[in-house]
Design a binder for these strands. Structure first.
Lengths: 135, 135
DNA sequence: TTTCTTGCAAAACATTTGCAAATCG
DNA sequence: CGATTTGCAAATGTTTTGCAAGAAA
């Protein structure tokens, strides 16, 4: 798992932030939390560290919609669901049906190695909030 | 479908390029094909047109991995598969299992409205090309 | 010392925006 | 005319890169 280099202070701190975050932060979010925690790392270092941690398999990079990549401390195989209203991103641990993937492989001829699924909808909180309004 | 404004020459030409493309071109790709076709639209106009066409439901914007958005002339509901080796993007028309989506909705509490699925693997051509090598 | 990492600034991209000129109805 | 759209350039936001200084093996 550890190829080259090691966990420097910066990388360790950034790893902890991502690991403990419940909201899939962007690099900018992480910068902000670093400042709040009394750290002041260079932007380049944050990106460097995030790439390192991603390549080491310690975190996952999510490229959902929007400009900035988000980072996820959960490395187990899982998918994501985004709330159309508040933008929240939650984890989905329901496993992708293997027979469906097999069908896709058959129909496309691809040797399929992984799937990234993003569901979109309305989260429970926003469902409540908009119960009487007409969205 | 048509809210405001109409199909100007630029939008029509760009629409035709996306519609006929077989490779999900980026804005830069489209710029290049415009030049090859003898047109010279401003970058801003290309983005403006792509947004217009997307909002009019005439094309789809894909945010796969990498920096640049890709555009797809197929607006029917479908998914995508990317070749890990050559980067090709193909269409997947195998329908997402509804009972799986229902399970995800149950487990997450979300009201799920749509799914974006990206499969990753190796396309038939690259499978052949690497048959004897050890990738 | 030799290699990797940080910090900082500049560069590289993709995309958006502001505004004057052109076009359409 | 009045509204929209184009073209161009400048601005924005994200991510990468170059390089000198610093830290680690």
């Amino acid at each position: 798992m550890t190829r080259k280099g090691l966990l420097t202070t910066q990388r360790k701190v950034i790893y902890e932030i991502v690991k403990q975050a419940k909201d899939h932060p962007t690099a900018a979010d992480i910068m902000e939390r670093l400042k709040q925690g009394g750290y002041s790392f260079a932007y380049g270092t944050v990106y460097n560290s995030l790439r390192y941690l991603t390549e080491a398999g310690m975190i996952r990079e999510l490229q959902l919609e929007g400009d900035a990549s988000r980072y996820d401390g959960h490395v187990e195989d899982h998918q994501h669901v985004i709330c159309r209203l508040c933008g929240k991103v939650d984890e989905v641990y329901t496993v992708v049906p293997t027979d469906w993937v097999a069908t896709v492989a058959n129909e496309t001829g691809y040797d399929i190695e992984m799937e990234h699924v993003v569901f979109k909808g309305v989260c429970p909180q926003c469902q409540n909030a908009t119960k009487d309004t007409n969205l």
